[in-house]
């Protein structure tokens, strides 16, 4: 069984004010087929965790490890991580001028599989995935993320998730900025991918709203660069009622006492 295992992960970024630690020892284990929700207030380091797993060059790993089936992910380049089966659905996907969605997806699929997909099935697959996510067929000929609405960008991310079939997906605030209809469409896509390939999911979110549509097996509360508490789905309900104040206050008190 596939496992993504994060141990004592410490990450910092270089700012104009000097080096700033963000992740202060994160431990998290995700098995294939499991859905983990990572919830926390703004600035707690949730997105840093997501981008560090994907290998963004801005984040400096100071310690710890990320093992995928016993292989160190931190030693891999960004594209090698994707080839190993990791996928990051980004919160703010960038626009890439002059590169069509169709061209981009085919290039990615070819890179991941090591050979170009058979044209006939590929076109059929693409159409199916686009129609599943209620995307217009003209979408494929548009440039990647260029002029996309917020909802279109997120649907495009989830379409890639379904098409590229990773082992583990990190969803970085995929729910933010979506209206209810778009949230349902996107959630259905995630659930389809989960069912189709027994995908392991690390779902990063600020709000509990998406948890009505994507049911987590585990919930982790993320505060001040580490997991402050973990539990089952009931923890999300508790957060919904009480908010993050209790954890933030505790973290502040700990910092003051230190």
């Amino acid at each position: 069984m596939s496992t993504l295992e994060i141990r004592d992960l410490q990450v910092s970024i270089d700012t104009e004010q000097g080096n700033k630690p963000i992740l202060k020892g994160v431990d998290l284990t995700i098995n294939k087929g499991e859905i983990h929700a990572v919830m926390g207030p703004n600035g707690s380091g949730k997105s840093t965790l997501a981008y560090t797993i994907a290998g963004h060059p801005r984040y400096k790993v100071d310690g710890g490890s990320i093992m995928l089936d016993g292989v160190e992910v931190l030693d891999m380049t960004v594209d090698e991580r994707a080839k190993a089966g990791l996928f990051l659905a980004m919160q703010y996907p960038v626009e890439i001028p002059g590169v069509t969605v169709a061209n981009f997806l085919r290039t990615a699929k070819t890179a991941l599989d090591g050979e170009a997909p058979a044209l006939r099935t590929w076109v059929k697959d693409l159409r199916q995935h686009m129609s599943d996510l209620k995307m217009d067929s003209s979408f494929a000929e548009r440039n990647v993320n260029e002029g996309f609405s917020g909802g279109e960008k997120k649907r495009h991310e989830i379409m890639q998730l379904e098409l590229l079939k990773p082992k583990f997906a990190i969803l970085d605030e995929t729910d933010s900025g979506l209206d209810v209809d778009a949230l349902k469409i996107v959630s259905e896509g995630v659930n389809r991918a989960h069912a189709a390939t027994d995908l392991g999911i690390l779902m990063i979110t600020h709000y509990t709203r998406i948890l009505r549509y994507i049911k987590p097996d585990f919930v982790h509360v993320f505060v001040d660069g580490h997991v402050a508490e973990q539990g089952g789905p009931e923890l999300a309900d508790q957060l919904e009622n009480e908010g993050y104040d209790r954890y933030v206050t505790a973290a502040a008190a700990a910092a003051a006492g230190a």
Binding site: V78, G98, V99, A108, A111
Partner: peptide, 27 residues
């Protein structure tokens, strides 16, 4: 733009190929 390269590489596209795509798209 580092973010362009990162986006493409995070989908499995090797750096050299990602560069090619970004420059060609630009021009």
């Amino acid at each position: 733009d580092d973010e362009h390269l990162f986006y493409l590489e995070s989908r499995g596209i090797p750096e050299e190929e990602a560069r090619r795509i970004v420059v060609l798209g630009f021009l």
